[in-house]
Simulated assay, not measured.
Amino acid sequence: MVDADRGEDLGQVHSLGELAQIRNGGCPHGCGTSAPTRKALRLANARDKASAAELERLNEEVRRKAAERVRANGLAMKLSDAEWQWDRKKLTFYFTAEKRVDFRNLVRDLAALFRTRIELKQIGVRDEAKRLDGIGRCGRRYCSASWLPELRPVNLGVAKDQRLSLNPAQISGACGRLMCCLRYEHEFYVQSRKRFPKEGKIFVTPSGEEKLMAIDIFHERLTFRTAEGDTRVVSLADFNREAEPAVAGRPGGCEEIDEAALDESETDYDPFEISPELNYTAEHDVAGLQRVVAPEAADGIGAGGNMDSRVRGNAEGSEDAGAARRRRGRRGGKRGRGSTGPGDSSESGEG
């Protein structure tokens, strides 16, 4: 029996000695680094164990009654588990919810129903799977419920580093999140890939320019593909021997090609240079194009006048002529002409 929150509770010894120190060192939030705040009171007797077993049977019944009150209050939450304290002085409910839930009215209803202190704890889906326990796709008990002391986050990059399928149905656990076991071998893959060149690089080998298509870290093999489409498989040891002459400055060996430098060299051109192909693709002969000058402007230039001013004058004259044509009446009247009769004058006035 151990000291609990405002009472006593039944605990079980999990590990002793050196194993207990190892487990305490791996717990989250630095557990085991400081002295415990609570202590063990006494050894549990047969009566204490029987009372604890009875409470375990009542936990499911209590959870169902609380779920009915949740539906009655219309709360968007899911009650996952319920846990009685051994002395029945506190009842803890664990729930999951997507958003923040105001459960103050629910706490009052549950306190009136069970006549004890009520505590509601929101947990995540991975903690829910840990509490409910079960069998994974490997056929064994959930790692989180059996031995895993800390639920570390697992992202999609862990699956990419191991070249696993990115289908969520194949790499997700019962909780709907990525499986915790994906992290077990991740460090091995990261350290093993450091011995291999990066995939997608182009190398100049004794066989010519080849692109590294794939690597096999378990059999230590590399797959290259030439420009003609031929592929060959080389062991890592053979590749390192081919690369040694290039490193030592001797003829032969493998040399890596910088694709970024090739792209920069291809784009190094004069932007003002006209390609000769444009002379053949243009509609008219580019070399034969000449400026066409109006005769009036040519006379002004020959007389020492300013061609730009003459051109602007012609443009303004053409705009005035266009405006005069637009001022004609819609009924055919013409302004600026002498009126030949009453009808003409009225039509011109209306225009």
Rank of each mutant, 00 (worst) to 15 (best):
V311C: 08
K160Y: 08
E68N: 07
S51E: 12
G176A: 05
L289Y: 15
L278E: 10
S346Q: 15
A111M: 05
P153M: 08
C175P: 02
M179W: 02
V190I: 15
K160V: 09
I257W: 06
P149W: 03
A53S: 10
G176S: 00
R38F: 15
Q12E: 14
I217M: 12
A287F: 11
R126A: 00
Q122D: 04
G302F: 09
C181A: 15
A321Q: 13
N155T: 10
L41P: 01
G249M: 02
R6H: 07
S146D: 15
C31I: 12
E60M: 06
K78H: 03
T223P: 08
S345R: 13
G139C: 03
L278P: 06
T96P: 01
I215F: 00
T223W: 04
V247Q: 13
R331K: 15
Q122H: 03
R232N: 01
S345N: 12
C138G: 09
K90Y: 01
A237E: 13
V2W: 01
A169Q: 13
R183Q: 11
Y94M: 07
S346G: 14
E98D: 07
R63L: 12
V158S: 08
S80I: 09
S348R: 15
V293N: 02
D270W: 10
L166V: 02
R104D: 13
G32K: 04
N105V: 00
A35T: 06
G332K: 05
A324C: 11
M213C: 03
E319D: 13
F188A: 14
V190R: 14
P153V: 00
Y269T: 11
R104H: 05
E255T: 04
K211A: 09
